[in-house]
Computed example of a mutant assay.
Amino acid sequence: MSRRISTLLVAFVTLALAVVASFTVRVPLVAMGPGPVFDTLGTVEVPEGSVDDPMGGAGGTASGGGGEGDEDTVARPIVEITGAEPDSTEGVLDMTTVAVHQNLRFADALTLWLDPKQTVVPRDQVFPPDRTQEQVDEQNAQLMVGSENSAAAAAFRHLDLPMVPTVRGIVEGGAADGLLEEGDRILTIDGKKIADSNALVEYVSAKRPGDELDVEFERPATSSGDDGAGPGSGGTEKLEETVKLTPGDPEEGTEPDQGYLGVMVGDLPANGTNVKINLDDSVGGPSAGLMFALAIVDKLSPGELTAGKHIAGTGEIDGEGEVGPIGGIRHKIVAAHDDGATAFLVPADNCAEAMTDPPEGIDLVKVGTLDDAVDALDALGSGREPQTCTTG
């Protein structure tokens, strides 16, 4: 065999192996792009068995996207109001997401890299290398619950509803496990009146592991109670428990020398109005908070917040209504544009990134608070110019 033929044969085998490897070998890269959008004023299919929620609160996110398998499903509002009659709504308030493609082969990564709507980055930039996928999913689920709770608290405050700190979730194995329950309304701790969830967090944060707290609370009576009243019907019983605080767990991001009550708490209206978010468990993270809050405000106030328009947006929100920045803003704007939105609510700190080659035909509205967002929607509905990322 001549040297030329040998060289060509080696080159051909090498090329063949490279092609095979490109379709089989995984690379430590992920691709991010526009993800699904969800109209927070719309409905979603959820498993029929998940409809009954004794608390009716955002602390228990239901699984959605039904239609797969044999399980019966039923349509429920994505933002479901209980304890009050929701006002009718029009238009669209889209929450947006980022789709993350993992476990890529080299050929997949190359194809996605060539797609202008996708961004290919090292996996470690998106997923912490010291955490498993299960830990990441659990953290995202917790962030989603926190986002829902903060959205509800911000909306209720915007509507000037009298509030009471309420248990929204129990940490399994935590100090309050078996003593407090979801839906319990905290009245006092160690005889001190607790005005809201911030006051509760501040009080407990000053305590150490092993400290005991006397917690006085009201528990909504169930249908099996003496008065036959159901949750939200006005029937309650006043109880008191002594709770011994437990230390934090560094693996969970909490401090071992600080005492923890082991509850998630949020502020809920004293009149029994409540919110439940119905979304698929795969939707996680904190960035939907602003849009959840706007949907709650729209459903609990007269008139149409959107004036019938198709609005999208994103942004973390805290219980005071402050809107914070998020990741993947450019992908979310593209997702909203592709879904037909004409305006996108952008957290103020994301404006610079959002203005990097945005799609045409969608206004980028700058918001720093829930009040800003409501004012912006009012301006859009009345034909006035809202504050945008370009106007400052």
Rank of each mutant, 00 (worst) to 15 (best):
Ala288Gly: 07
Gln258Asn: 10
His331Asn: 15
Asp196Lys: 11
Glu252Asn: 15
Gly319Ala: 08
Gly313Arg: 01
Gly315Cys: 03
Gly83Val: 07
Thr236Cys: 02
Ser287Gln: 10
Lys207Gly: 04
Asp298Ala: 15
Pro116Thr: 06
Leu29Tyr: 11
Leu239Ile: 03
His337Val: 05
Ala109Ile: 04
Val201Thr: 14
Val367Gly: 00
Thr73Asn: 13
Lys276Trp: 07
Asp115Ala: 01
Ser6Lys: 13
Ala154Arg: 03
Ser2Ala: 08
Val346Leu: 02
Ser301Val: 07
Ser2Val: 05
Lys192Trp: 04
Gly210Met: 01
Ala288Pro: 05
Leu17Trp: 08
Thr254Val: 10
Ser382Leu: 14
Thr111Phe: 02
Thr188Met: 09
Leu9Ser: 09
Glu212His: 04
Met264Cys: 08
Asp94His: 10
Arg168Ala: 09
Val51Ile: 14
His101Thr: 12
Met144Ala: 06
Pro122Glu: 00
Val30Pro: 12
Ile81Trp: 00
Ala307Ser: 14
Gln142Thr: 15
Lys276Asp: 03
Val121Leu: 01
Trp113Val: 08
Asn350Tyr: 08
Leu300Met: 11
Glu148Lys: 00
Val265Ala: 10
Arg185Leu: 06
Arg185Glu: 14
Asn271Val: 03
Asp226Asn: 10
Ser50His: 03
Asp371Thr: 15
Met1Tyr: 11
Ala270Leu: 07
Pro36Asn: 14
Asp137Gly: 07
Gln133Lys: 06
Gly191Met: 10
Thr342Gly: 15
Leu41Ile: 13
Ala341Leu: 03
Asp363Arg: 09
Leu279Arg: 08
Ala154Ile: 02
Thr306Trp: 04
Asp226Arg: 15
Ala199Ile: 06
Asp177Asn: 09
Gln387Lys: 11
Ser150Ile: 04
Leu213Gly: 10
Asp160Phe: 00
Arg123Ala: 15
Ser224His: 09
Met163Gln: 12
Gly289Thr: 08
Gly228Pro: 11
Val346Glu: 00
Ala11Asn: 00
Thr369Val: 05
Val120Pro: 01
Arg3Phe: 14
Ala31Tyr: 00
Arg157Thr: 11
Glu212Leu: 10
Asp349Met: 14
Pro220Ala: 15
Met55Ile: 12
